[in-house]
Design a protein around this nucleic acid. Sequence first.
DNA 1: CCCTGTCTCGCGGTTTTCGGACATGACGGC
DNA 2: GCCGTCATGTCCGAAAACCGCGAGACAGGG
Lengths: 183, 183
Amino acid sequence: MKKTQPETFTLDRLASPVGEVLLVTDAEGAVRAFDFVDYEARMRKLLTRHYGEVVLTPGRAPETVRAAIGAYFGGDATALDTVVVKTGGTDFQRSVWAALRTIPAGETWSYGQLAGAIGKPSAVRAVGLANGANPVGVIVPCHRVVGANGTLTGYAGGLERKRWLLAHEKAEAGTEQGAFALD
Amino acid sequence: MKKTQPETFTLDRLASPVGEVLLVTDAEGAVRAFDFVDYEARMRKLLTRHYGEVVLTPGRAPETVRAAIGAYFGGDATALDTVVVKTGGTDFQRSVWAALRTIPAGETWSYGQLAGAIGKPSAVRAVGLANGANPVGVIVPCHRVVGANGTLTGYAGGLERKRWLLAHEKAEAGTEQGAFALD
DNA sequence: CCCTGTCTCGCGGTTTTCGGACATGACGGC
DNA sequence: GCCGTCATGTCCGAAAACCGCGAGACAGGG
């Protein structure tokens, strides 16, 4: 019903070891959303929530972004660190998402740790929710957050993928450290 | 909290026989809001409701618009008919506001008539509500609607102004018809 | 009788409020 | 150890409240 004029973004599709992924970038080349193809509906819902009506025109994302994603899935777990992302959401959510990007590849934090990192140690549950509302999967590594006891608890792209991503990143870090656990 | 980028409009201030008025126009020169200076808070609230965060930068509205308003207050009751307005709001509200502009100057309709005109004869009260939510006072002549028994019932800018506007328009029409009532 | 003023009640869109559901974890009782 | 409890931010749906009304019922006065 609102009449705010629609925003237009570019929608690219890439292949990955865990299935086709969707990559939404804006005119400046910043990433606005990233998700697995089988969760396109969810992604669009988030975009709509943040920006109002949104138009996605199929097209190629900037080469630097495509290259970074390729490198990441190819084995360079830190390749995504320099990718520029831009999100909507509330102040709280943005602070959570910003904190997520400070978690080093190959490492995991608990929801409590994350809550502490943004200065609201008791907002643990809210952090979980904000995590789930992350529109830029993988690049903003919400998958690096697990339960305090080590359980994976949940992932918007499916727990299988969360497991895969963590193993992938750990394996990469592991090649330098010499050892890592498979399960 | 939403992060939809703020919209920017121009805010002009004009003198009128019923006090200073505020005139908000967009980059295309369409009128987005119009209200009396002592109801600025209400106007801003409506703008925010419709467009999210709004920035009003002081400046001059297009001369055509300024001229039309001057002519109207100067005595030409139909001078506002050609002014281009643009509003947010729900479908229902916009249909009400569109119908308002079809009421000839110097004439008044009842809320029931107006409801009938938009094809919802029983939505009388809702029409009253939509009327009160009109962001573009005077130009979209919500003041030309009165109770079925002729009472003025209400006006966002104060009943005094409603009375004045109606008398003003009727006087203008009256110069052709030869007679009109003062009270 | 007729006219008028007051009161009651139904009408319908919009806004507000409220109560849940969650990708958790720390704590106190058993 | 297992279980209930509570804190915390956000979204979503449902329900209620809000009114710039108007028709109909009724009581008084001319």
